[in-house]
């Protein structure tokens, strides 16, 4: 990654909202395309080297983007349901885990993880660089889900991009063992 590119992660405890700001070294038109064309999404939404399979793609308000990923030989599904779309300005969608029919399911890794996350991505361009501001917040979540989301996000924020604490250094040395 180009270290000149802005990359920030923060969490608003009161609003239960994650905010990620990331700069890309490309024009808005191109970044928008990469976020909204299924052939591109397939190549970056999943883990490196494991492109996701686009099962269904309806890029319109209330439209669904259903994808599958094969993790250790097992297929899992996820989806976006698009909300507002303003070309090259704003993209809103709800993300969740899904079954093969597009029905929302609980996160496989933890039952307290919120069922649905509402995401808004704001795009802007300056000096031929594009900045996205992504905000994610649980939708219709219970107190317990909100609490879980906060703890998780708070912990991630502390470790994200750059803040090199003693603990992280220590963990690095552990990994080498």
């Amino acid at each position: 990654m180009n270290s000149n590119l802005k990359s920030e992660f923060s969490f608003d405890e009161e609003k239960h909202t994650i905010e990620i700001i990331r700069e890309f070294d490309a024009k808005l038109e191109m970044v928008w395309e990469v976020w909204t064309k299924p052939e591109h999404l397939a190549n970056w939404w999943g883990p490196p080297g494991l492109p996701i399979t686009v099962e269904k793609y309806e890029f319109a308000p209330q439209g669904i983007f259903l994808y599958s990923a094969s993790v250790q030989g097992q297929s899992s599904f996820g989806k976006f349901v698009y909300h507002r779309i303003i070309k090259q300005e704003l993209l809103e969608y709800i993300t969740s885990f899904s079954d093969e029919n597009g029905q929302t399911i609980r996160a496989p890794f933890n039952e307290k993880f919120p069922l649905e996350i509402f995401n808004s991505v704001i795009f802007s361009e300056q000096n031929e660089r594009t900045t996205i501001v992504l905000r994610g917040t649980p939708l219709n979540a219970t107190e317990e889900e909100l609490e879980f989301f906060s703890k998780m996000s708070g912990s991630i924020q502390q470790g994200f991009a750059g803040s090199c604490t003693q603990l992280e250094n220590y963990l690095e040395t552990l990994k080498k063992h």
Binding site: F24, D25, P48
Partner: peptide, 13 residues
């Protein structure tokens, strides 16, 4: 997950 996604976007761009 997010760092990887952004890096992959960088590559695609």
């Amino acid at each position: 997950i997010w760092e990887d996604r952004f890096n992959q976007i960088d590559d695609i761009l």
